[in-house]
């Protein structure tokens, strides 16, 4: 990366430095103008009144009654989804590598189908499905629906991660195992999968970011009490929609930024450990992926 930056332009000389400073000043002025406009508009609409912002600092109940339980709701839904989606993803990822057509093809169809459909559609469907055809208590239907939608979607994404992880291993690994007389299942579970898991780890962590963001979608639409949905109860109690949304956004950014950092830290660590011999599944590739395309 740093290499790419430096090769695109010469080291700035005195003139270029001056020009860069000029650009910076123009840019700062433009940003300041936008910020000034926003602040004046907000002040004009009384959105900057201290009373609307103060509760987040002075009233701990905002956090204990609404935001932290909301964050807890987000975490529960996200963790449940990833814990259930992982084994499902592993099974389908391995199934797609099977040499039997009758395993490989159905697995591929399922994976491609769920990757082609918006996760919101899956959640809405699951929501009404649980209401009409299951004995899930209605107050947990939204959670069940969100987790189901996320598992179906992320299970299929993780299937691709697993597949790419296994394919990223040197061929010699499987060949050596075969030479030792191992069965295919043994090769897969004792040789390939354990190594693939380390290669996949960064991708799995960064998939958590996607899951956390999608819980907000499901929660907001289906009314599950996660962080974003709590914006309603907070602004009902304090009449401060804008400050609430800002604080909720901050919490999301902090949580997701930490997860992204963890993912890239893991990636660097794993890459350095084996001195470039081993590839990792690039976490960036996982987030948004096209059906019908190979990683």
């Amino acid at each position: 990366m740093s290499k790419a930056i430096s090769i695109l332009y010469d080291a700035p000389g005195p003139k270029a430095k001056q020009r860069n400073i000029l650009y910076s000043i123009v840019f700062v002025l433009a940003l300041a103008a936008v910020a000034w406009w926003i602040v004046t508009m907000l002040a004009d609409k009384h959105q900057l009144d201290a009373a609307k912002w103060k509760p987040f600092v002075t009233d701990s109940r905002v956090w204990t009654t609404y935001l932290l339980p909301g964050l807890q709701g987000t975490v529960i839904a996200a963790l449940l989804s990833v814990v259930i989606a992982l084994p499902i993803g592993a099974i389908f990822g391995i199934a797609r590598l099977s040499e039997h057509v009758w395993i490989r093809v159905p697995a591929s169809v399922v994976v491609e189908f769920f990757r082609a459909i918006p996760v919101l559609i899956l959640m809405v469907f699951a929501n009404y499905f649980f209401v009409h055809y299951s004995s899930v208590p209605l107050e947990s239907v939204a959670l069940f629906a969100i987790v189901t939608g996320l598992v179906l979607y992320n299970g299929s994404v993780l299937a691709e991660v697993v597949r790419a992880g296994i394919l990223s291993l040197p061929k010699g690994q499987a060949e050596a195992a075969a030479a030792l007389g191992m069965r295919k299942t043994q090769t897969m579970t004792l040789i390939q999968l354990p190594q693939a898991v380390t290669a996949m780890l960064p991708a799995i962590v960064s998939q958590l970011v996607v899951i956390v963001k999608d819980t907000a979608l499901g929660g907001y639409i289906l009314g599950y009490a996660e962080l974003l949905t709590q914006s309603r109860t907070v602004s009902n109690a304090y009449s401060n929609t804008i400050p609430t949304l800002v604080f909720i956004a901050l919490v999301f950014i902090v949580v997701n930024f930490a997860l992204s950092q963890l993912a890239s830290w893991l990636e660097n660590k794993l890459r350095n450990r084996t001195k470039g011999n081993r590839t990792t599944v690039n976490p960036e590739m996982v987030e948004e992926q096209a059906p019908g395309m190979k990683m």
């Binding site: 814990v83 499902i88 592993a90 099974i91 598992v151 299942t185 579970t189 999968l193």
Partner: peptide
């Protein structure tokens, strides 16, 4: 059934 497959089955059935 391999260990992993069994673990997988366990998690799925839990789900």
């Amino acid at each position: 059934l391999s260990r992993l497959a069994r673990a997988g089955v366990a998690v799925v059935s839990l789900a």
